[in-house]
Design a protein around this nucleic acid. Structure first.
Lengths: 236, 236
DNA sequence: GATTTAAATGTCGTGCAGACAATTTATCAA
DNA sequence: TTGATAAATTGTCTGCACGACATTTAAATC
């Protein structure tokens, strides 16, 4: 058999699937979409679509995300490629998984109106199609891993946020509770936060000061470690 | 246009490429192969091959590695998928990159005889085809990252090894020098090493005691952190 | 002005990390 | 036999980061 024949016989479809994490100030959430076509029409799914021959994988991921949610210019990262033989019952399809972190409040109205996407608490996900549940599990592990050493959590927060909010976010990601005093000491010692003069007043009587991220330091210190590891064994 | 047409138009070839790290007691090395077919025939390349429709990606990676080097049952890990449009000049081809760690002395003769593969010091690599140079750079970063937190370096060592060897390995991976006293204190404190009664005598007059890895503890403690980070900023 | 709720702040003890030097073991040569 | 050599082995001290832990302060509500 010639090489060309061999090759064409082994061509495959490649999909991209996007996991989108959001944080509403209390809870970690995932954005899912109701599948609009067969097979598995009507069930919940990650944002996915087929990659085209004339685009890069990263481009396909951005395009799919834009088409299905309207989201643009968000934090995106390639995680892993899934390739079990029977993962897609219709056709032989690989899937390259991407993970996104977004500020939930910035987009949630837009997403709900224009697209049939919905936020689900990470702890109360509906049943998902194909191997999407495995993808979520893996993405969650990778988020933990990365958040333990890099300040990526700020991608999930609005421009202004409070220390209690930040702590709740870490507690959500690591599914644990932290000590307020030790937490603020550690997070402030990074020098990444700039205290504001105004307060957030809805969730407490006293009100909590807002902070902003020092974006210059965020860039330069991204690879410095924060060591926010409540339990090292939980990381992969 | 029908979905089926759309789909078939966008089918692609998928390759797997394997990066194989080895350690000879002094230096980190990479196993390369001389490409035996056009295009780029005669130039150096990673171990690569096309994936088949009826196998998983992991299977393809193991198969390719076996076919090209005879290696089996070695540490392998999927790193990332490359998909620049023009990365392969002949056909639209994605490449899923894998990284392997092996004990160089265990296989090196066999590899040299039966296959046209050769070890190169990581610091003196020849020019590589396609985007393989980028792949190596990425794999090296990932190796650093992982070695900083997990005891994977033992995959690169023979069953019996000395502390100086282990230290040289870390120094090679992180491209730095470490203090002997602090190093042995830290590495022994993990409890992963078992001191042997015999010594290695070729590389010094006094001789250095052999150690073995406690494989049971290696399994259970794999996700515990060693914190061998000479310079956090060098990690990705 | 008393009560309530959550934010903000400080101390102490332990353990690990990094800087640093002297001793021991075995080989080799005179 | 002895002395020189080369590398492995071992120990101390200091400072800092971490974890455990309780009280005070600010603002709203009644």
């Amino acid at each position: 058999m010639k090489i060309a024949q061999y090759a064409s016989k082994n061509r495959m479809l490649v999909a991209v699937d996007c996991i989108i994490f959001g944080f509403d100030g209390t809870e970690l959430k995932l954005l899912l979409i109701k599948r609009g076509f067969e097979p598995e029409k009507g069930r919940w799914s990650l944002m996915g679509g087929l990659m085209k021959r004339d685009e890069t994988i990263d481009h396909a991921a951005s395009r799919v995300l834009k088409e299905l949610t309207g989201l643009e210019n968000v934090y995106m990262e390639q995680l892993c490629t899934f390739g079990e033989v029977e993962r897609d019952p219709v056709d032989r399809t690989l899937s390259v998984l991407y993970s996104s972190l977004i500020d939930i409040n910035r987009y949630t109205q837009q997403i709900n109106q224009d697209y049939h996407a919905e936020w689900f608490p990470l702890k109360k996900l509906p049943s998902l199609i194909f191997d999407h549940r495995d993808m979520v599990t893996l993405a969650q592990q990778k988020l933990r891993y990365k958040a333990a050493f890099h300040p990526i959590v700020f991608e999930l927060l609005p421009e202004k946020f409070t220390l209690p909010q930040l702590q709740h976010l870490y507690e959500g990601i690591f599914d644990t509770l932290m000590d307020k005093r030790n937490f603020s000491r550690k997070v402030l010692s990074t020098g990444l936060l700039v205290k504001q003069k105004d307060k957030e007043r809805t969730s407490s009587k006293r009100g909590a000061f807002y902070y902003k991220l020092d974006k210059r330091k965020y860039q330069t210190k991204f690879n410095a470690f924060l060591n926010f590891i409540p339990n090292p064994d939980s990381l992969r």
